[in-house]
C-alpha cells in the first residue's frame, strides 16, 4: 500500500497494527468469498450425486487414483513448506524464506504438471464433455452416458477452477520470491508472505475436499 518503500504504514492507517489487522481481516473476507465460489460447485455436485449415484461411481472409478493420490501428497507437502516460509519470514531467516518459497513453487508446479497429464489422458479417451464424448464402464453397466458426462463436466470445472487458483498462487509465489531476494521481508514486515500463505492453504483445503469426492467414490467395487 505504501508509496515510499521505507514507510511501513500507509498514509491512511494510524499504526502498523491497524494496518496488519485490516489486511488479515480483508484476506479472510476474500477467502469467505472463495468458500462460496467453490461452494456453489459443491452444491451442484451434491444435487447430481444424489440424483445419479451410479454415474458418479462409474465416472469416479475411471479417474486415475494413483496420480490423484500423488497430487494430494504434493499439495500437503507444499502447505507445510508454505507454513515454514511464513515462519522463516517471521523469524528473519532470509535464506530459509527463499528456499521454502521456491520449494512451494516447485511443488505447486509439479501438481499442475501431473494435472495436465491427467487431463491429457481424459482428452485421449474422449472423456471431455462435448460432441465427441463417449464412455463405457464394465463395473457400472447401468450408468447412463449423459449422467456420466455431467460428472465429467463437474470434474473438469471443479479441478479446472482449482488449477486456475494454483496458477494464480504460483504467480504470487514468484512475486514473493523476487521480493524476498531483495530482502523486503523481516520480522516486522511479513504480511504479504502470511496472506499468500492463507491463500495457498485455502487452495489446499479445496483439494482436500475434491480428492475424496471425485476420486474415491465406490472404490470398494
Amino acid at each position: 500500500m505504501s508509496h515510499s518503500s521505507d514507510s511501513l504504514v500507509a498514509h491512511h492507517f494510524e499504526d502498523i497494527e491497524q494496518q496488519n489487522e485490516s489486511a488479515v481481516l480483508g484476506m479472510w473476507l476474500f477467502l469467505a468469498q472463495e468458500i462460496m465460489f467453490f461452494g456453489g460447485l459443491f452444491a451442484v455436485y451434491l444435487v447430481y450425486r444424489y440424483k445419479y449415484p451410479e454415474a458418479w461411481a462409474a465416472g469416479s472409478t475411471d479417474l486415475d487414483i494413483v496420480l490423484g493420490t500423488v497430487n494430494t501428497v504434493v499439495l500437503l507437502v507444499s502447505s507445510l513448506t508454505m507454513a515454514m516460509a511464513v515462519w522463516s519470514a517471521q523469524t528473519g531467516r532470509q535464506k530459509g524464506l527463499v528456499r521454502y518459497l521456491l520449494a512451494t513453487l516447485v511443488l505447486g508446479s509439479t501438481f499442475l504438471v501431473i494435472k495436465a497429464f491427467e487431463y491429457y489422458a481424459k482428452f485421449v479417451h474422449h472423456h471431455v464433455p462435448g460432441a465427441s464424448f463417449s464412455f463405457h464402464s464394465e463395473h457400472f453397466p447401468n450408468a447412463d452416458e449423459g449422467h456420466v458426462q455431467l460428472f465429467y463436466c463437474l470434474y473438469f470445472i471443479m479441478t479446472g477452477m482449482h488449477a486456475l487458483h494454483m496458477v494464480i498462487g504460483a504467480g504470487l509465489l514468484i512475486w514473493l520470491i523476487t521480493l524476498a531476494l531483495k530482502g523486503k521481508f523481516g520480522p516486522d514486515r511479513f504480511m504479504k508472505v502470511e496472506l499468500t500463505g492463507f491463500y495457498w492453504h485455502f487452495v489446499d483445503i479445496v483439494w482436500v475436499f475434491l480428492f475424496p469426492l471425485l476420486y474415491l467414490i465406490n472404490r470398494h467395487h
Partner: peptide
C-alpha cells in the same frame, strides 16, 4: 468470519 463463510455454504446446501 471463518465460521460465517462455512455456515453460509451450509445454508446453500
Amino acid at each position: 468470519f471463518v465460521a460465517g463463510g462455512f455456515f453460509w455454504l451450509l445454508i446453500l446446501f
